[in-house]
Simulated assay, not measured.
Amino acid sequence: MTDSAYRVETTSRLAQWRIDNLASCTYRKSDPFKIGKWNWHLALEKNRTLFIKLFPEISNLTRENPPIASFIIRVVSSVGDRKTLVHPEIVDRQLKNTDDFVWAVEVPLTGKFIIDVEFLDLKATSPNGGEICSIWAEGFQQKQSNATALASLGRMLSEGIHTDIVIHASDGSIGAHRAVLAARSPVFRSMFSHDLREKELSTINISDMSIEACQAFLSYIYGNIRTEEFMTHRLALIRAADKYDISDLKEACHESLLEDIDTKNVLERLQSASLYELPKLKKSCMRYLVKFGKIFEMRGEFDAFLQCADRELISEIFHEVLAAWKGF
């Protein structure tokens, strides 16, 4: 059998495999052919029934990001009246192995025929687990490029690739990159642009952050922070965002802190809202304490809060309480 018996001809979205002859009991797999980002195979298995399979080649890409395919597959007789058998359209089926698409062709086929696969769409997730979208949709390549770049930045941090500065937290140290820090923070940029201690010694002391909070801070800067990491360290992150003038991080923390105010955290968040000028959080905490009457359920905690809180903030709280009483 010649090499051409295994070759699949392709255009951008169409694949055709010409079968000249097929023994009664046989298995045949095509050479790999590329459609989209993946290499594919067609396979024939004939016993009493002819089975046609379509599957991506096993690779790291397929394991990590299997294709989600929509396609129409046909069998066309290449002799006589060119009888055509058409499988119902497949829509958004994930294909990872040889058994994910199998077509049992019940009609006997004799002579030469063509297996024709028309790919209507191929979808994939972004490298860092983002939303599923078509690889042929407008903007997909840019999204994929952005996601890959972010993943690479994350590896630079997690694997310590060519770090050139060390950050000392309260209980540990971590390597980072001046260029990345300077690009994300005007405060860091100023440190490295002038003859300051940080530039000379290639170190930054962030003694008011734990190493875990500092890791979360850097993970945000490098674009690969995990949700649970962000949620755990929001107050430390908002402090760092304010200190190093990273406005998007400050706003992200601000919005997140609005979502789960309760009696255990409202006083601490009110203090942070006042300190870091977070008007929406401050208003929400005040409303929770005063309008919903939670301040009267927290007498012990509120008494302790009065001992250390900013006097101006205490005055604002009592002003809100008095205003609420007048409203009854």
Rank of each mutant, 00 (worst) to 15 (best):
S152W: 01
A147E: 09
V166M: 13
H162P: 03
A151H: 00
M156Y: 08
L157R: 01
G139S: 05
A147I: 03
Q142I: 13
T163C: 10
I165K: 05
I132G: 05
C133Q: 15
E159P: 04
D164F: 04
L157F: 03
G139V: 00
A147R: 00
G139Q: 00
E138K: 14
I167G: 10
A149I: 04
A169E: 01
S158H: 11
T163Q: 06
N146F: 12
G139M: 01
D164S: 08
C133H: 14
A137W: 04
G154R: 00
I135G: 02
G154E: 02
K143F: 08
G154F: 00
G139H: 02
S158M: 05
I132S: 12
G154M: 00
A169W: 05
A137M: 12
R155D: 10
V166F: 12
L153N: 06
Q144R: 15
C133R: 15
Q142H: 11
K143T: 14
F140H: 07
T148V: 07
A137I: 13
K143Q: 14
S134F: 07
R155A: 11
T148P: 00
Q142M: 08
I132N: 08
L150Y: 03
D164A: 06
S152I: 07
G154K: 01
V166Q: 11
W136K: 08
S145H: 10
Q141F: 09
L153Y: 07
L157M: 01
T148Q: 08
S145P: 06
